[in-house]
Each structure stands twice: as C-alpha cells, then as structure tokens.
Design a protein around this nucleic acid. Structure first.
Lengths: 231, 231
DNA sequence: GCGCAATCTCAAGGTTATCTCAAGGTTCCC
DNA sequence: GGGAACCTTGAGATAACCTTGAGATTGCGC
C-alpha cells in the first residue's frame, strides 16, 4: 500500500508541499505533484498513480473538469478537496466519479486516513505468501502450509523467516538475524538463533536435517530459496 | 433497496402524487405521503422509513423545523426539496443533517437517481454478518447470536471485533488493535485490550478459555477465524 | 442536574507456550 | 585426524498472556 504513487493536484504551492510532507512522514515514497490540470494530465499520461488528490478550485481547469478528463481515460481513485461551505461540490464530485472528498481546512491525520481507506478499498491486499520447495508460508497468518497441513509460526520464527524472505536468495548474516531478534547486543545469541533456525526447518523443510530451502552458508549466515520471488 | 419505505412530505397534493408515481413506476412499493410536518412525525412514530423526501416550504412546520425534529429521534436519510434560487436553504439543510437536496422543478429521473444514490450509501447492500464457529456476529446491529440468544456488543468490543473481521484470518497486531481503541498513544493499554478480548470471547466462543475463533498468536497479535469469508 | 447502570480501565496473581541455553553429536575442511 | 563451525535435543527459565475483580468513568433516564 505504501508503494502506490500519489498524485497531488493543486495550484497552491504551500498546500502541495504540506500534503506531500504529510505522506512523506507517513512513509510514502512515491509522491508526485502537479500545479495545474494540464500538468496533472501529462503526469497521468506517462505514469499510473494509485490515487489522485485533487483540489476543486484551480485557475486553468477546475477540479470537476479535470476529474471528467481523468475519468475518460482512467478509473484511478480520486479524492477531492473542497473549500468550506461548498457543500454541493460534494455531490457534483460524487456524480462525476470521485471516491471521496475532504473539506479544507483538514487535519493531516484525516487526509491520511481517508487516502488509506480508499487505497485499501481500491487495491485489496495481496496475500503475502512465500512459496518454497516443500511448503508455503503465509506471512499474514504466520502459518506454514505443508502437505495441506497448517502449522503456526512463533513470534521469533516469524521474525527470522520474514528477514530471510525479505532478502530471498541472498545471504543474511547471523549478526543481522540476531539483531532482528534481540536488538543491538546480540553476541552470544548465535546458539539461540540456531535453535530457531532448526524449528523453522522442521516446519518448512521436507527433511529438516537436509534443508533445501533454508540453507546454511558456512561462516557467513543463511539464505532462503523461494520459488516465486516475493514481490 | 426497492423494499425500503419512502416517505414523501409535501403540502401540495399534486407534487405528492407526482413524486409517488415517479417511484411507483420505478418499482418501489412502499410509499407513504404526509401533507404536513405533524402528519410526517406521526408516520415516523409508527414506521421507520428508509428515506424521507422533504419539501422545505410548508405552511404548518417548515422543512427545517421538521428536519430538526426528525434528527432528534432518527438518523434516517433525508432529501430536501428547495425552490429555485434559495441557495442558502441548501446550506442550512446540510447543517441540520440533510443528506442531499434537489431544486424544484426537477426531472423525475434526477430525483430517482439521487434517492437511489442515498439509499445505496445509507444501506450498504450486504448484511454485515460474520459467521464464526460457535456464533454469528451482526455488525450492523452490534449483536452476537449464539445458540439463538442475542447478546449486544459494547462499543469497544465492537471496534476490536470489526478490526479483526476486516482482516479475517490474518494476524492483527496488538498495536493496531489498541490504536483503534484509544488512538496514537496506546502503550500501556495492552492489558485493557486483553480484557476486551476476554469479554468478546465470552460472547462469541463456546468456551472462552479454549478459543477456536478468536485466537491469540503469542508475540504477534490476534486473529479471527471466520466460516464464510466476509465480503 | 443527579443517580443509577453499564461500560471501561487497570492491577494482581496464575498459567502456559515460547524462548533460551547447554551438552553432546555431526559434518566439513585443512 | 583434528579443529571449527554447525546441528540436535531436551529441560528449565521467562515473558506473554489469561482471568478475575474492583474501582473509575461514562452515559442515560428522570
């Protein structure tokens, strides 16, 4: 959800900056701003934003016109910003296919919540499932599916696995893994990590003593081989 | 949607008849008309219409007054009919809690569309009922049905359950759950959450100490197992 | 406003799955 | 063959969670 591109369309520079910073501080990285309807359409022509935040009041092409133009080519979700009191704007916007509206001035938090709600509705979460050689791991459920059987992962096992899956195919050092488990000072924890690795292997490997997915790289660390690389 | 009752409030007989026929020819069957505010309130007292269409200009009690009276007892959606040019009327109506307005004269089609839009928004198609192992939860009524018995959920229990149901099957972290209860700063609230979880379990589980629907995933959070996935 | 009921919050003691770690075994490389 | 790195197993320690009750708070009806 965080990696969806956000397009902000507003003629006021201050507002653009403000909105951008709201999303930046919430962890969003793909943020584009346009100062006019024309600019916005140009952006849409070459990228496909996940959501568009659109101010109704703009000089060259007002929000409604722009919304119509957008709707002619795309079904991307649109949140409209309306000035206070323009209650009828809400309905005009909805009829043209806006997904939500927000009255200025608004609280940063509110904008964030609404955008997140829209994104969630528009782009239903993909299941985070990692497929391995002998089993599959559902990260959202913290479960391993092996031979039709579901086995839960414990908290530590989950952290270790998550870290390995994040770096699927690459080597993850013992130090990094330990740190995800017990923080900065991890010296002397290697033996415990081993136990967790063992338990993981018992759950995900056909034969935990002859691992084919969660491999040891002697002297360096461990690595996880996945079938379809996690997205 | 077609079976929701429509209440028309207007002092002009011709208009009442016209509006009624608009809906009748669209397939609506439950249509009631009232010629005055008093009559309207009498109707509301014994029935619960799905939507009220309300003319602003009426002799005994104008539309705004009536709207206020209605809002004192009910959240039923209201569409206001205003005469042309009374721009400020719209504003006043919205402040009092009207859901939409329409300027007279209007096209039959337009009235129909707006009413349908309101009904769709106000009464989401599907009944939000979550079926669990030992009980079912009606989110719209905030009730648990277990062994034929209906038990109400409290506000907090409802929030927790709703969040879990939204992510049915997936793990919901303690942090997320606490945030839905008390906002950003939730540290130190975990113990209270536990109590709510306990109470929920007492309502939805066969044996609250051996939960099968609302499971705890130690170190990660909780998850809810539903029978028919929601949606 | 006031009192009552329902709900929420929090603490204390109990329970248990999970984590940790040690001790002995295995593999691999020099 | 010897050492180093890693594996395997089990058992005790522990942190996380459960359960209950009682006080605080909220909200509702009079």
């Amino acid at each position: 959800m965080l990696d969806r591109e956000i397009l902000i369309v507003d003629d006021e520079k201050d507002l653009r900056t403000m909105i951008r910073s709201i999303f930046e501080s919430a962890g969003y990285t793909q943020i584009t701003a346009a100062a006019s309807g024309k600019e916005a359409l140009a952006v849409i022509a070459k990228k496909t934003p996940g959501i568009i935040i659109l101010d109704v009041m703009m000089p060259d092409m007002d929000g409604f016109e722009l919304l119509q133009e957008i709707r002619a080519v795309s079904k991307v979700p649109v949140l409209m910003l309306t000035a206070k009191g323009e209650a009828e704007d809400r309905f005009a916007g909805f009829e043209l296919g806006a997904d939500d509206y927000l009255v200025k001035p608004f609280l940063p938090k509110e904008l964030l919540l609404r955008v997140q709600a829209i994104l969630k509705r528009a782009y239903p979460e993909k299941e985070r499932v990692v497929t391995l050689n002998a089993a599959a791991v559902d990260l959202d459920r913290a479960e391993v599916i092996k031979e039709g059987q579901r086995t839960p992962l414990t908290a530590k096992e989950y952290s270790v696995f998550e870290k390995l899956a994040e770096n699927a195919g690459r080597i993850v050092t013992v130090g990094v893994l330990c740190q995800t488990l017990c923080g900065e000072i991890w010296q002397g924890y290697e033996t415990t990590l081993m136990t967790h690795i063992r338990h993981l292997r018992e759950k995900i490997e056909e034969n935990p003593s002859k691992p084919v997915s969660l491999l040891t790289v002697k002297g360096l660390g461990y690595k996880l081989l996945v079938k379809e690389p996690e997205k």
